Amino acid sequence: MNCKLAHKKLIFFVEQELPVSEMEQVRQHLKQCAPCAHFAEEMKKTLSIIEADKVEDENPFFFTRVKARLENTAGKQVAARPVLVRILQPVAFSVILLLGVYGGFKLGQTPTINAGNNAEAQELIPYWNELDAEPIETFLME
């Protein structure tokens, strides 16, 4: 048996999960090959450390308690909201939404200016469109 094949079967050898004939072949290879024997010993040490660190403190009644709690919550029905609340909540939301849209349109409209009263409009909104009065290039050139 070569080292590559022995390495493939080594984990099964350490766990003693190989057939008897293959176990004997790996055992013979480990007697003849010192590096493979050293590797097998390191693997045994590592597996023993892992096995020692395993914690198996399972609570045997955990599943039973979880199942009982799920059945209790499934048995309880969620309290139904009153009919008035179920109807008024969407209506109130719709009214508030429509008021917001209407207010947005009103804010976005430009003020109407009477053609005959242009002087009064200029007094009311003196800086509404200042860029038309003096372009930025003229201001920077001075």
Score class of each variant (00 low, 15 high):
62 F>Y: 11
108 G>T: 06
3 C>I: 03
87 I>P: 06
108 G>D: 06
104 G>E: 05
46 T>H: 08
138 T>F: 02
105 F>Y: 14
71 E>G: 10
85 V>N: 09
16 Q>C: 10
91 V>W: 01
37 A>C: 11
102 Y>G: 14
45 K>S: 11
80 A>R: 09
84 L>A: 10
87 I>Q: 10
5 L>Q: 14
135 P>M: 08
48 S>P: 01
55 V>C: 09
90 P>L: 08
101 V>E: 04
100 G>S: 13
57 D>C: 01
110 T>D: 11
120 E>K: 07
54 K>S: 07
4 K>E: 13
115 A>D: 08
134 E>M: 12
43 M>A: 14
23 M>A: 08
123 E>G: 09
102 Y>C: 15
40 A>R: 01
138 T>W: 00
54 K>T: 03
21 S>N: 11
15 E>K: 15
43 M>T: 10
84 L>D: 11
54 K>A: 09
98 L>E: 09
118 N>Y: 09
64 T>N: 04
89 Q>A: 14
61 F>A: 13
26 V>S: 00
141 M>H: 08
7 H>D: 08
113 I>V: 15
4 K>R: 10
37 A>L: 01
106 K>E: 12
139 F>C: 02
2 N>D: 03
29 H>N: 01
43 M>V: 15
9 K>I: 01
28 Q>N: 11
94 S>T: 14
24 E>N: 12
114 N>V: 10
24 E>P: 00
76 K>Y: 00
113 I>Y: 06
26 V>Y: 00
73 T>S: 05
42 E>F: 04
18 L>F: 01
108 G>F: 02
15 E>Y: 03
1 M>G: 01
56 E>W: 04
2 N>Q: 04
86 R>P: 00
24 E>S: 13
36 C>V: 02
50 I>E: 15
59 N>F: 03
23 M>L: 10
30 L>R: 00
112 T>F: 11
92 A>K: 05
23 M>Q: 03
130 E>R: 12
15 E>V: 07
70 L>G: 03
57 D>F: 01
73 T>M: 11
138 T>V: 08
117 N>W: 00
103 G>D: 14
139 F>P: 00
5 L>F: 04
100 G>I: 09
31 K>T: 06
24 E>Q: 11
125 I>N: 10
89 Q>D: 14
77 Q>H: 07
16 Q>M: 13
2 N>F: 05
122 Q>S: 03
14 V>G: 03
131 L>Q: 12
86 R>D: 00
12 F>N: 12
139 F>R: 12
9 K>S: 06
62 F>V: 03
8 K>G: 08
69 R>Q: 10
46 T>I: 07
141 M>C: 07
68 A>R: 00
90 P>M: 07
139 F>W: 05
51 E>K: 15
20 V>E: 15
45 K>D: 13
118 N>T: 09
64 T>R: 10
97 L>R: 00
140 L>Y: 03
137 E>Q: 07
64 T>I: 08
111 P>K: 15
38 H>Q: 12
105 F>C: 13
67 K>H: 07
113 I>C: 12
106 K>M: 11
7 H>W: 04
98 L>V: 14
73 T>F: 04
65 R>S: 04
134 E>N: 06
11 I>K: 15
17 E>A: 14
113 I>M: 12
75 G>H: 05
68 A>I: 03
24 E>K: 08
77 Q>D: 14
